[in-house]
């Protein structure tokens, strides 16, 4: 994260303070945070079942709980800053955020027919399927915490680039006004 000429996290602090000066953005951020976090609290333990099953929340792990809340807050921050960037004509960041959403859903690749079907579509025989498919599914399931970390890292990168863009756009404006 940035420790540039204005001190630690200058861009991020400036962007957040500037955007949240508007009450509408703060309301948007808070409502999105709660909605996305709750959605992920239900979604993460449901993914191995192959559908959204509210009952599955009883199987949520501490890692999944922490990730659901962190992801909800960070994705909401990115969304809010993106809206703010759009309104102020600063550059928005989309690709990295999309990558983080994909990484956050990786444990859906275990237990569902997605991987076996994709491999079967290549024309692979049953022994080949037995060699590859379970190992791939196990890999995604038992390493999901690394994909969660990747997802959070991508969101932090999004926040950083958005903050730089907003700072470049609006800090110049502010300083220009004060002179």
């Amino acid at each position: 994260m940035n420790t540039g000429r204005h001190g630690r996290l200058h861009y991020e602090r400036f962007a957040v303070e500037t955007a949240f000066a508007g009450k509408a953005y703060l309301v948007l951020f808070l409502s999105l945070s709660v909605s996305i976090s709750v959605l992920y609290l239900f979604l993460l333990p449901s993914l191995p079942l192959g559908g959204l099953v509210p009952y599955a929340i009883r199987f949520i792990t501490p890692v999944e709980t922490a990730f659901a809340i962190t992801f909800g807050v960070l994705l909401s921050l990115v969304a809010t800053l993106n809206v703010y960037a759009f309104m102020t004509r600063a550059s928005s960041v989309k690709g990295v955020t999309a990558g983080s959403v994909i990484a956050s859903l990786v444990n859906g690749l275990c237990c569902t027919p997605l991987i076996p079907s994709l491999i079967a579509m290549t024309g692979a025989s049953t022994p080949v399927l037995y060699e590859i498919s379970p190992r791939l599914q196990a890999f995604f399931e038992f390493n999901s915490q690394y994909f969660y970390a990747l997802s959070v890292a991508l969101l932090l990168v999004s926040v950083h680039y958005l903050s730089r863009s907003i700072t470049a756009c609006c800090d110049v404006g502010k300083r220009g006004m004060s002179q």
Binding site: P48, A56, C111
Partner: peptide
């Protein structure tokens, strides 16, 4: 038996 979906389905 290591499949988390199966482990969640059995108690369901």
């Amino acid at each position: 038996t290591w499949c988390p979906g199966c482990q969640e389905t059995a108690p369901l």
